[in-house]
């Protein structure tokens, strides 16, 4: 872990002093946890709908993932958005890697990294994301933070670098119902709100995870609310 500290600091410094940029996607998505479980496969559906005073944004993701070792997992996603003509369709595809850097509970906090490469459907537009994930347990509560650096370029989007910050406070009340509070920041957006997550176990490694959140943008006047939910079946 200590060998990674200079790399972490350099990346954070770069992004700390980069100019403010404005992106084009939905910031509210999901707060990642820094853990990978060996022998695991998953299919996932994420839904994000945000309503402003003038329009509605809709985003959905379908994904499949599997762990390649007890510390690294890979996921692929099909991403759909509602376009300017109000038609919903495939807008991008993505490959994602999650790397568990530390054993859960070994250090003061648990650490992981995230790598994503996204290509827009039918256009030569790209987005690469690198991020750190950290989680700290406090008894039955846990605090999870995600910090992402997003680089975008292509034929139809300006070359730019963005930063995103996500936070989740979770109380492990019972497996099926775990209340949470989430914060999302990035792309000229700062939103927060309540969330719930839960898990239902079937036999063996089969389990269904669900997440539901309602995030309100608070830095601008006017309405900007996002409802998000995710279903994840692990097997």
């Amino acid at each position: 872990m200590s060998k990674l500290i200079p790399l972490m600091l350099i990346m954070l410094l770069i992004c700390s002093y980069s100019t403010a940029t404005y992106g084009d996607g939905l910031v509210v998505d999901k707060v990642y946890h820094p853990y990978v479980l060996a022998n695991e496969q998953e299919v996932e559906w994420r839904f994000m709908s945000s309503q402003t005073d003038t329009y509605n944004r809709l985003g959905q993701r379908l994904g499949y993932g599997r762990s390649l070792s007890d510390t690294f997992a890979i996921d692929v996603y099909l991403i759909g958005h509602r376009d300017d003509n109000l038609d919903f369709g495939l807008s991008a595809y993505e490959i994602e890697g999650r790397w568990m850097l530390t054993e859960q509970g070994q250090y003061w906090a648990d650490w992981g990294m995230l790598f994503e490469v996204e290509k827009k459907y039918r256009t030569n537009d790209w987005e690469v994301t690198t991020g750190f994930i950290a989680e700290k347990e406090f008894g039955k509560s846990s605090l999870t933070v995600n910090f992402f650096i997003v680089q975008e370029w292509g034929d139809n989007i300006p070359t730019e670098m963005e930063t995103e910050f996500r936070l989740k406070y979770r109380y492990r009340f019972m497996p099926e119902v775990q209340p949470a509070f989430e914060v999302y920041s990035g792309e000229d957006f700062f939103g927060l709100g309540p969330a719930f997550m839960g898990i239902h176990r079937f036999e063996g490694q089969k389990q269904l995870k669900w997440e539901l959140g309602f995030i309100s943008e608070v830095s601008h006047s006017g309405k900007d609310h996002t409802l998000r939910f995710a279903l994840e079946y692990e097997f």
């Binding site: 600091l9 954070l12 410094l13 992004c15 700390s16 403010a20 933070v145 910090f147 930063t163 910050f165 920041s185 990035g186 000229d188 957006f189 700062f190 830095s219 601008h220």
Partner: peptide
């Protein structure tokens, strides 16, 4: 919101 983003980044650093 940009200022908040910067502050959060610095805090994370």
């Amino acid at each position: 919101s940009n200022l908040l983003n910067k502050i959060l980044t610095q805090l994370l650093l």
